[in-house]
Amino acid sequence: MKILKLPKEKLDLFASVVQQFGELHAPVEQDGKYVFKRLTRWSDARLEYDRTILPPKKYFLPPQESIFRYRPGEGFVPVTDGLDQRIILFGVHACDVYAMNILDRVFAGKYRDPYYQARRKNIAIIGIDCLPDKNCFCRSMRADFVDHGFDLFFYDTGDYYQALVGTALGDDMVQATGSVFEPMDAAEIDDYKRRSLNKRRAFQLDVEIRDLPEIFEMEYESELWDELGDKCLSCGSCSMVCPTCYCYDVSDDVELGSRAGDRTRSWDSCLFYDHALVGSGENFRGPRASRIKFRFYHKQRGFVAEYGRPSCVGCGRCSNACPVGIDVVQVIDRLRRVEDVASR
């Protein structure tokens, strides 16, 4: 992989040049939190942020999108609005890039999701490295570094950025900026290693995910699930903020006074009462305890069987967002505990 360095004072130049490749979006501050948003001024971008409220998935799988328009006499005509829009997401953290790589696998396979794939093709990702805060456990989830899924990835080494060039598009962005990107020398490789070590030491949380599937199987009947079920409000916040929750609902709406309408898909959550409800009235996950158990089970156990790793990337959003303080790290710790002795 091509690795270059960019002096910090040239970042503004790079940002202005890179806009020729698409509309620039980056984290901006909003009520003390951060959101990915279209930039009106480059100075609004906040590259040193903890986490955005919603992960970048909102760009690839929008909270709500019309996928077909139905008209009598025409049938279902796909809606393609916005699919070819070129966007540059600047400042995506490693865990969020990793999460996109996980979603890539879900929306590929035998049946490719063309809406997701079109957006993934047209939205460039410029990642940026970060240091963990008290809720981050991406290292435990092996999502603290990424080697693909981005066009460019920046490491802030203090005086300059180290830039990993991930794709041909990323290289074009570098070329377009002219000679401001420079090759790295040996001393600068040490800068990278130093930063990597510092990052590793900065983690305050650690969970052991090895053999977690087996422990989940054994603890399937644990009273913990009932406790969580009593606490959980089924608000679905954890799913909405999760970078790898991809469940969606589909509904058809008819325009008033006509037989035409839209088929819309929108984010859904397995915490919602009707997630497993069928037409006959049978609900396969009626009790709240079984729904919250399912969410943990699918992330930490089910996904391992399907894709070889948990779908959790340790971004810490769900623990932050939960109004009643359900914390994924505490749940896993509690499951791993041996006779009331903490496992770590």
Partner: peptide, 19 residues
């Protein structure tokens, strides 16, 4: 088996049982 389904192609998540 019968389950709620919105996509039929392994994306929407509703018909998931275990893994």
């Amino acid at each position: 088996l019968e389950r709620r389904m919105k996509c039929g192609i392994g994306k929407c998540g509703h018909c998931s049982i275990g893994y």
